[in-house]
Design a protein around this nucleic acid. Structure first.
Length: 477
RNA sequence: CGGGAUGUAGCGCAAUUGGUAGCGCACGUGGUUUGGGACCAUGGGGUUGCAGGUUCAAGUCCUGUCAUUCCGACCA
């Protein structure tokens, strides 16, 4: 393809950060708010989130979970109960200290996550093994006082869901942890067309207070990794700390085993950075708020708008479809606009097409156009959307493959990273010192210890001791 | 939180040694256009991020502060 200069959008190969913020604002997803670190999610961006919510919520319900809602504010004393958890979150919580003009007896934190308050409530609710399992999810906002913020990827307040479950046995809790990780992986791969690597976090990287943290990691177009969702196994640590007890089948007092799992609006940043290109956003059909847009040509000519409306009405039961009949813009402008917004399929139709009983279908992922008979449009579009969804996943996977390298020593890692940001597979002894050294010298981190990954070396790529694991390294968002 | 950069109309920018703010796009109105970011005419829009200070006079100089952004450290 010839080099084209797209107005107003930085080139992604020249300045990826600028490209990202250009897309996010110019496609109408977010705007900056007057409060530092807080962003406004505009309707088009919010619709993407709603589509993700709808799909994920369906999966949660199918697996027996129910939604509930817990308070925004958590008393300081309640947060302080589990030591590792507080230490992990204390530096980034926002505090409420006054009600009106009156100073509060005890300050309240705005939830950075809800383990503490939910565990407190669970302690009241669970008395018998018959009360288990508890399978609750909440859709909520949380606040973490981050130093550096970027729309979707890291904002002070963000939207997410957090599931919190209790189980009778550790096996059952561990099964739940993995089950939910799999649900996230399915959502990312099948719905968002983002290939992910499932694995476990190192001790250094795991959630504050968890026994094990599992993650799905995705590789962005610029070679940086995005932690896309996490699922935590708590064992009985929180339950003990928060005094959740029940009478077991054997009539003895027992402590349940706990999990939590979450995914946030950050996933929207993942969509943008996985699929976007020089012309703008590129949305997988399944999440796209508008799947098909009709752009009329010569819309002032008789019969065009009528035909457009007829098409829209015929197709609207099947697809999320809109017609861009704005009077003050030319078709060319509308085409560019639909590409900036990432709409997967565009129908171009004008008097000449109508005469022939045809229209032109444009696909956003490959820029291909073809003429299609109006009689067969519904089937064509359906096939096309499926194909785009599949192709976008394949393209993302190919990009990941191209940016994945194997390294057997720290020098090799450095050499690879000096050429290009990428995902690096290496062997690891499991020692924290090696992990710290990696970060210090390359600023890359261990993203995860993947499930089902073949052994690539016998010795640690960082220290040459015996390797226990294969790990993925990358710089991260 | 450390280091750098930038804040002038919605966006992008200009304004000479300090002399009282302008251009393009966007927006309103009227008209002509419409097969890949249309054109003509006309109009509206500003406490120059904010607060001080220096000066006869500050967008311009000084101090502070806030925000955005990039690079680090910290995290979904």
């Amino acid at each position: 393809m010839e080099k084209e200069v797209v107005k107003d959008i930085a080139r992604m190969d020249e300045d990826f950060s600028k490209w990202y913020t250009d897309i996010v604002t110019k496609a109408g997803l977010v705007d900056y708010s007057p409060v530092k670190g807080f962003m406004v999610i505009k309707p088009y961006g919010y619709e993407i989130w709603e589509n993700i919510q709808k799909e994920l919520d369906k999966k949660f319900k199918e697996t027996g979970h129910k939604n509930a809602y817990f308070p925004l504010l958590i008393p300081e004393s309640m947060l302080n109960i589990e030591k590792e958890h507080v230490e992990g979150f204390a530096p980034e919580v926002a505090w409420v200290t006054h009600g009106g003009e009156e100073k509060l007896e005890e300050r309240l934190c705005i939830r950075p996550t809800s383990e503490t308050i939910i565990a407190t409530m669970y302690a009241k609710w669970v008395k018998s093994y018959r009360d288990l399992p508890v399978l609750i999810n909440q859709w909520a906002n949380v606040v973490r006082w981050e130093k550096t913020t970027r729309p979707f990827l890291r904002t002070t307040e963000f939207l997410w869901q957090e599931g919190h479950t209790l189980h009778e046995t550790s096996e059952e809790a561990m099964d739940e942890t993995i089950k939910m990780l799999n649900i996230y992986a399915e959502l990312f791969e099948e719905f968002l067309a983002i290939p992910v690597i499932k694995g476990e976090k190192s001790n250094k990287e795991k959630f504050a207070g968890a026994e094990n943290t599992f993650t799905i990691e995705a590789l962005m177009h610029d070679g940086k990794a995005l932690q896309s969702a996490t699922s935590h196994y708590f064992g009985d640590r929180f339950a003990k700390a928060y005094n959740i007890k029940y009478q077991g089948r054997d009539s003895k007092e027992a402590t349940p085993f706990q999990t939590s799992w979450g995914m946030s609006t950050r996933s929207i940043g993942g969509i943008i950075m996985t699929h976007g290109d020089e012309r703008g956003l590129k949305l997988p059909p399944k999440v796209a708020p508008i799947q098909v847009i009709i752009v009329p040509f010569a819309q002032h000519k008789e019969g065009v708008l009528e035909e457009v409306d007829k098409l829209r009405i015929t197709l609207k039961n099947k697809f999320r479809i809109e017609a861009d009949i704005r009077d003050s813009y030319t078709p060319g402008y509308k085409c560019n606009d639909s590409e900036l917004k990432g709409i997967p399929v565009r129908i171009e139709i004008g008097p000449k097409d109508i005469e022939k009983g045809e229209c032109i279908l444009f696909r956003r992922d490959t820029y291909e156009k073809k003429s299609v008979s109006l009689d067969n449009l519904e089937n064509e579009i359906e096939r096309l959307l499926e194909d785009i969804q599949k192709n976008m996943f394949e393209m993302a996977k190919e990009n990941r493959t191209n940016k994945t390298h194997v390294a057997k020593s720290l020098d090799e890692i450095k050499e690879i990273l000096s050429k290009e940001q990428s995902l690096i597979k290496t062997a690891w002894c499991g020692d924290r010192e090696c992990e710290d050294r990696l970060k210090e010298e390359t600023s890359a981190t261990i993203r995860c210890i993947p499930f089902d990954e073949e052994k690539i070396a016998d010795t640690c790529g960082l220290c040459s001791k015996t390797a226990n694991n294969t790990v993925y390294l990358a710089k991260q968002y």
